[in-house]
């Protein structure tokens, strides 16, 4: 068996291969060590929680983005979705509930009621718009880069129109606080939620037909079509899930902040792509693992956190993120060449 023969390799090769296969985990551990060394507050309760919440938000976006990249497309609208989905949901909820006589917005812009329906609407709106991206892309056969770029404009413009540019505050909304700040065994519930979503996606990809559909759609679309797979459907699904995960990320973000900002999430689409690339997902489609993207989101968030703790201003972080994107992408290009 070929798989067994690899373990007979000389003692020299095994550790090199081990490092290569577990690169992301090794980087993560190194970062943790660095964090502990560089800053006394790194392991502090508040700091850990903030890292975990950020990881959950970026990780969700990255998982959705990874699925889209696996089917050889790209989604630039996830950042704008993070603002649009809650703003649209609240506007819709206001309309629906005012029909039954409940006003959910008090004062100028305090949301006071209707948490459940808002949450449901956020999920619905984000998934549907994600799917709409996918439908335009597969039906009109136009590049996803342009369609989702157009959608980015549309969604961020709509967010402004619906909100008038003002923040919506959730401080008086019953349940919103516990939605955003619940903690279980010292770990934010929302982080557990993110891990659950991540593990679910990994399991579904690995142990059900869905994985083969997604990977074959991106890996060799013609082959998939010839095998009778409806690749259009799976692309639409990937975009739908990407939208949905942006919606969930928005819920975590806003419930934590206790407000919905018109500009929240702006630029996050690029970070989600960066994380996916660091995690080993490539633009060629059909390559890479979701687990990689999940670890990469932690890597990125911890790194940004350490940089803040050592007092680096935001501008340098931007530079470093850029360098990491180039570095990660060139590493894939290099390993592809040598393999």
């Amino acid at each position: 068996m070929a798989s067994e023969s690899s373990s007979i390799n000389g003692g020299f090769i095994v550790p090199a291969k081990f490092i290569k296969n577990n690169m992301l985990i090794i980087i993560l551990l190194l970062e943790l060590i660095m964090g502990v060394i560089l800053s006394p507050v790194f392991l502090g309760n508040t700091n850990v929680q903030s890292i975990l919440i950020n990881t959950a938000i970026f990780g969700l976006l990255a998982v959705g983005q990874s699925l889209v990249m696996l089917v050889k497309e790209i989604d630039l609208s996830v950042g704008a979705m993070m603002a649009f989905s809650p703003i649209a949901a609240i506007a819709l909820a206001k309309k629906i509930l005012s029909a039954s006589g409940t006003e959910i917005i008090m004062g100028s812009n305090y949301v006071v009621d209707g948490l459940f329906i808002i949450v449901v609407l956020v999920l619905l709106v984000s998934a549907l718009i994600g799917m709409l991206n996918g439908i335009i892309i597969v039906k009109a056969k136009v590049p996803s880069l342009i369609v989702t770029l157009g959608m980015l404009y549309v969604l961020s413009g709509m967010s402004y129109i619906l909100s008038g540019g003002y923040s919506l505050y959730l401080t008086n909304l019953k349940g919103a606080k516990s939605l955003g700040s619940s903690i279980f065994a010292g770990i934010p519930v929302n982080f557990i939620l993110f891990l659950a979503v991540g593990v679910l996606v990994i399991l579904v990809l690995k142990y059900t037909k869905v994985g083969n559909r997604i990977y074959s759609t991106g890996g060799n679309e013609k082959a998939a079509i010839y095998s009778g797979i409806n690749t259009d459907f799976w692309k639409v699904m990937a975009f739908g899930i990407s939208g949905l995960s942006a919606g969930i990320a928005a819920l975590i973000y806003s419930s934590r902040l206790q407000s919905v900002e018109t500009i929240q999430g702006s630029g996050y689409e690029l970070i989600s792509i960066a994380i996916a690339v660091i995690g080993g997902i490539t633009l060629e489609g059909g390559r890479g693992k979701i687990s990689g993207a999940i670890i990469a989101s932690a890597i990125l968030c911890i790194m940004l956190n350490i940089l803040s703790l050592v007092g680096l201003i935001a501008w340098y972080k931007t530079i470093i993120i850029g360098l990491i994107i180039i570095g990660a992408a060139s590493q894939h290009a290099f390993s592809r060449k040598t393999s």
Binding site: L270, I273, A274, V277, L283, W315, Y316, K317, T318, I319, I320, I321, G322, L323, I324, I325, I326, A329
Partner: peptide, 12 residues
């Protein structure tokens, strides 16, 4: 990817 990266670097 390259220009996504440099976009970030140059902006910073």
């Amino acid at each position: 990817m390259v220009t996504l990266g440099t976009m970030s670097v140059f902006a910073g």
